[in-house]
Amino acid sequence: MGLRRVVRTLSELCLTIGTLIVLFVVYVLYWTGVRADDAMREEIGRLQDRWASGPVAPVPAAGEPAPPPASPPAGPGSPGGDRAQGGDRAQGGDRARSEARDQDAPPPAAAGEAPPPAPRTAHRPGASFAVMYVPRFGTGWAKPVLQGTGTDVLKRGLGHYERTAGLGERGNFAVAGHRRTHGDPFKDLPALRPGDAVVLTDGTTWFTYRVDTHPYRTLPDDTAVLDPVPARSGYREPGRYLTLTTCDPEWGHSHRLIVWAHLDATRPAAQGRPGALSG
């Protein structure tokens, strides 16, 4: 009787633990994604509501959610920057329209407020302030960018390293995102190639960044990748840069994967989506 009881209890324990593990896998692989997708949609909706009504945008982003933009057709990667940074071409055309490139000219929309850029970065921790679009990840790929890189923040979107420059500012605008779980926002980060567009908007301006590097693998404590002029990126002079970080390998945490881009063009939100998104 005693032995039977022991065997039965052990079996029940094994079954229970097995069920727990299966449930946990379901939670990690599926449920975190459901929750994160909901949260990200909510954040984007909140942002667009604020931009449509609030004083953030001097000119309301009217055409912002509309897919057919009034933007000029831009060939893939054609509005290249001026600098001889890897892969930039000078192809005229709509480059005249995309005025501010890189360090020389301030973004036109920010012309009046460019000298004191501080207010733009003063986002409340955990609050969303921009939306990122990456055509390489799919036309429907749009994720909110939140202030901070804490665990709770990254459950609701991409996280902006608070110590780094603000969106579109001189310096390095650095963003972290999950590669797996919580919506897999940066699942396809290794697919980014030089010339790919990373487009962000803060409601007043569209910022089109162009990727300059192949994904760079580094160690988890390599904070130098966030420097204003990241040494390993190939950039040599100060500019307006973007850094994306996620984990590597896909399900591990032994390394980090880094992608760098430079600000290629800006465009007032009132003028509709930039060419990089219409392709």
């Binding site: 901070g148 890189t149 988890p220 399900w251």
Partner: peptide
């Protein structure tokens, strides 16, 4: 390990 996507692991801001 799926949560470690930053390079500074939450160093204090500032």
């Amino acid at each position: 390990p799926f949560n470690d996507v930053t390079v500074d692991n939450g160093l204090p801001a500032g």
